[in-house]
């Protein structure tokens, strides 16, 4: 069966994925599944406990953030 293709915005970049249906799958795809990473979809926080349930849809705007040096 052919996997669905979706186009989403990730950190401001337009990216097209095949076989990426959930936040957890997106993080795995980007190699961010084992590092601290907070996720927002369409400006709403998706807590880590919900990463595997949260379905991504075409046009979703995803932010993946981390902690950096700051004052």
């Amino acid at each position: 069966m052919e996997q669905a293709q979706i186009q989403i915005q990730v950190n401001g970049e337009s990216l097209t994925y095949v076989g990426v249906e959930t936040v957890a799958q997106l993080l795995t795809h980007l190699g961010r599944d084992n590092v601290p990473c907070a996720v927002e979809v369409n400006q709403q926080l998706v807590p880590k406990a919900k990463h595997s349930q949260h379905q991504l849809h075409g046009g979703d705007c995803v932010e993946l953030v981390t902690l950096v040096g700051g004052g």
Binding site: R32, E63, L64, L67, V68, G70, G71
Partner: peptide, 19 residues
Amino acid sequence: ITVAVRRERLFDKDGHSLL
């Protein structure tokens, strides 16, 4: 100590992390 919240650099996996 204070820190800031910023976008991950998606395609720079070798970058060292503050953490």
